[in-house]
Amino acid sequence: MPFKIATWNINSVRLRLPIVQRFLEEYRPDVLCLQETKCPDDQFPTAAFRKLGYNHIAIHGQKGYHGVATVSRIPLETVEKRSFCGIVDCRHLLTRMRVNGGDILLHNFYVPAGGDEPDPEINPKFRHKLDFIEEMRAVRPAEMENTATILVGDLNIAPLEADVWSHKQLLNVVSHTPVETSGLESMRSYCGWVDLVRRHIPPEQKLFTWWSYRARDWNLSDRGRRLDHIWSSPGLAPALSRVEVLREARGWDRPSDHVPVIAEFG
């Protein structure tokens, strides 16, 4: 049977619940991974998700900042809520589910943004981001029999030249600096993850998942970046049938500055 997963930095799940409900009603992914939920676990709007058939919910949240959540129509088991860089700030959630007779391990990540100054010597937020990516080398895909691994989330780095509106103009802008892009790609390659979005969409084709709130007309200026990713273990990659970046969601009522990214298998 086909399997559909989506990832979305929602920038406050309670504030933007109406557009999350719209997305689930119209696109019906089996699993939705949210980042930047900005919501303590006991205040997560579980009833609204269950009303739409997403009865299985795993949460790793905190008040006002960060936070990740995985909601599913398929039974979920929470496996791990990992902390990175010695900081407990709700940026990771690992769940397990049974799909088509096999297990899928699903990592949901929200990587630190890194602040504005791309110099780790004077900007501790940027240092934290680089250290976080380095620690992600410990998160490797499982390739056991009947087990596949997916990693999704807002990784806050646009690694390829076509992942930003202007490669040259953003080389010194946090999210596309060489130290970030090389660090992310080195980690991905070292661990053996497959970038499913770029497996399906040619790497030279411009593709964005985020547009700043600062733009008067985000669609006209189109100064975007691909910050949201879906990766998998190599054995699962051949089953990928479709990828969609839901650009239109950036124009929905009270939108997030990110849009959903969807991958379908089978």
Rank of each mutant, 00 (worst) to 15 (best):
H92S: 03
L207A: 15
Q205S: 13
V71T: 10
M1T: 13
D154V: 07
A263W: 05
R250P: 02
V173E: 11
Q205Y: 04
R28S: 05
D163P: 08
G86A: 03
G235N: 11
L52M: 12
R223E: 03
G64V: 10
I104F: 09
A249D: 08
V79R: 12
L196S: 02
S233Q: 08
N11H: 07
H92V: 00
A138Y: 04
G64F: 05
P2I: 15
P159Q: 07
G235A: 12
L93Q: 00
V152K: 03
P120I: 08
N108G: 04
E134T: 10
F265M: 10
I10A: 06
F109N: 01
R242T: 05
I74N: 05
W231N: 01
S166Q: 09
F23A: 10
D30K: 01
Y65M: 13
C85P: 00
E117I: 15
C33Y: 01
L207N: 12
Q43I: 00
E135A: 09
P203R: 11
R242M: 11
H176Q: 09
S12T: 13
S212R: 04
L196M: 13
E134W: 01
C39I: 08
D228F: 09
T37A: 02
I5W: 05
P141I: 10
G61E: 09
V139L: 11
L24P: 07
W210S: 06
R216V: 02
M136P: 01
P29S: 07
R199V: 05
K51P: 01
D228A: 13
A263N: 02
P120R: 14
N156A: 09
P234N: 04
N11Q: 11
T209C: 12
D119K: 12
F109I: 08
D163N: 13
S212H: 03
A162F: 14
D103C: 09
L17F: 04
R22M: 06
D163R: 14
K63E: 12
